[in-house]
Amino acid sequence: MQVLCCEDDFECWRDQARQLLRQDIAPHAVVWEDRDHRQLFASEPLPASTPMAGPTAQATRIPARLLDELKRAAQYRVSGRWNLLYRVLWRVAMGERQAMLAGDRDGSELQRRIKSVSREAHHLHAFVRFHPVMGRGGLDYVAWHEPAHDILASASLHFAERLGRQRWLIVSSRDAVWYDGETLHHRQPCPADWAALAESVRDNADPLWQTYYSSIFNPARLNSKVMQGHMPLRFWAGLPEGRVIPALMSRARAGAQKDGQAEAVASKSGKVIRSAAYAKDDSFAGAKPDAKRPD
């Protein structure tokens, strides 16, 4: 049994896997250890591969799609993540193409990991909350975001498409990405001063957004199960709106379900428009509270 470690780096694993394939080493004869849980007796270096006779020598042929899928599945954080990847690679190289398909035992696990990784990238795109820092540290926006998989480096360029030339930083406890207006930089581990900057803004509230969120919610349709299914609890702490959710839910349960109006609106006085002509008067834009709301 060979014990290997690839430092959770895909290119490193790929080199190792390529060598193992050339040496005909089956998946059950090799195990990769996780970077963070390396055992004491661990890894002897891979025996130097016999130099190839030339570039033509039995290059393993695998579908291009497989390489891309292995790379994506490699971002899935789970202990022993590299072993499955080698088993799939081995089986496909041996001609068992279904090993990469969802109907297969290994393939279904591979596809499940890819799906989770891509879901986590969507979570990044959805739930990052940028705080404006007005040029502090040469930056326009800073966010703290905690993804469950190693997606920060591969999925963050999305924000350069959204924010044009603006400069931003996204920090997690494992790594960080910084966009300087032109280029994306990935750092692992995250530099301490970046972490400190992100830490200083991560709990900032935003009354406008919290107001919008509270007002667009329809308390007559309370359905927290669906909300939590789409927006897992682990993200709430990072969302300014996450802090108003418990209060909104408990007020909705306590009786606001009669109609859909937000409580903050119900407490303001109303205004019936008496005639069509009245509505033409532009000056009522800032409507004075002249009518008492009936109880």
Binding site: R162, M227, M231
Partner: peptide, 18 residues
């Protein structure tokens, strides 16, 4: 600023599940 990719993104969900 601004981008679109055809898919759309749900940035948040309110407690009504929307």
């Amino acid at each position: 600023i601004g981008a679109t990719n055809g898919m759309g993104i749900c940035h948040s969900y309110t407690p009504d599940g929307r």
